[in-house]
Every structure is written in structure tokens, then in C-alpha cells.
Nucleic acid binder design. Structure first.
Length: 106
DNA sequence: GGACTGACACTGG
DNA sequence: ACCAGTGCCAGTC
């Protein structure tokens, strides 16, 4: 389909918005939904430029291990943990999300 | 149009 | 189990 990469960022945002409350998705998952299974980096960048912090739940996006990004930027990893727990996500003692239970599967 | 950058993913030591 | 290096893709200079 036309102009896929031009809408790639938008696709990423759309995919992230589709993540249901109480679930999380990995960058690779979002990249796959966006149309590029290897563009996990681009997904991260897309969220970095996050134009709508109140619409895009970037805190529901974690890396492949269920860990949060090392350079998380809306207050710190602690804030992200609180937000996810507030949505019903339980964190492991390691500070990671249990993908086995909370990974969003479209 | 070419090169550098970057919120990842995967493999090897 | 952890750290380092490499590869991929789209964006920006």
C-alpha cells in the first residue's frame, strides 16, 4: 500500500493507542503492526518525538524483555511503573513486566 | 542524494 | 546471567 513509510510514525502511534489497558507491547510488536518487523528502533524514535503524550500510552511500550527503555522520558522509570500498576499490570521483583501474562496479542 | 543518528533485537563471548 | 558488537529501518542534517 502507498505511502506506508510516510505514515509509519502515525502507524506506530495508532498501534500504541490500540494497546488495551492492563496490557503492554514490545517495540518489535509495534514495529510489526506498523509494517516493519525490523524497525523497532524507528518505533522507539517515533515515541521519542511523541507529539501527543496524553494520547499515546508510551508507558505501555517496553523492550522485548518487558523492561522499560533506558532513556525513558516522561518522569522516569518509576513513574512508568506506577502508571502500569495503576492499569492493573503487575511488575516482577526485577522491575520488569511479566510479558508472559501482560503482553498484548492482536 | 549521502551520511549520521537512535526510547531496539539478536548473537557471541 | 551480563556486557559488547552487529544489523535493521525510518528520520533528520
Amino acid at each position: 500500500m502507498p505511502q506506508l513509510q510516510e505514515n509509519f510514525y502515525k502507524r506506530v502511534y495508532q498501534a500504541v493507542e490500540q494497546i488495551p489497558k492492563g496490557k503492554v507491547a514490545t517495540y518489535g510488536q509495534i514495529a510489526l503492526l506498523a509494517g516493519s518487523p525490523r524497525a523497532a528502533r524507528v518505533v522507539g524514535y517515533a515515541l521519542h518525538v511523541n507529539p501527543s503524550p496524553g494520547v499515546i500510552p508510551c508507558h505501555r511500550v517496553v523492550n522485548r524483555e518487558g523492561k522499560m527503555a533506558p532513556a525513558f522520558a516522561f518522569g522516569g522509570p518509576d513513574v512508568q511503573r506506577q502508571m502500569l500498576e495503576q492499569e492493573g499490570v503487575v511488575f516482577s521483583p526485577d522491575g520488569t513486566v511479566d510479558l508472559k501474562t501482560y503482553l498484548w496479542r492482536p
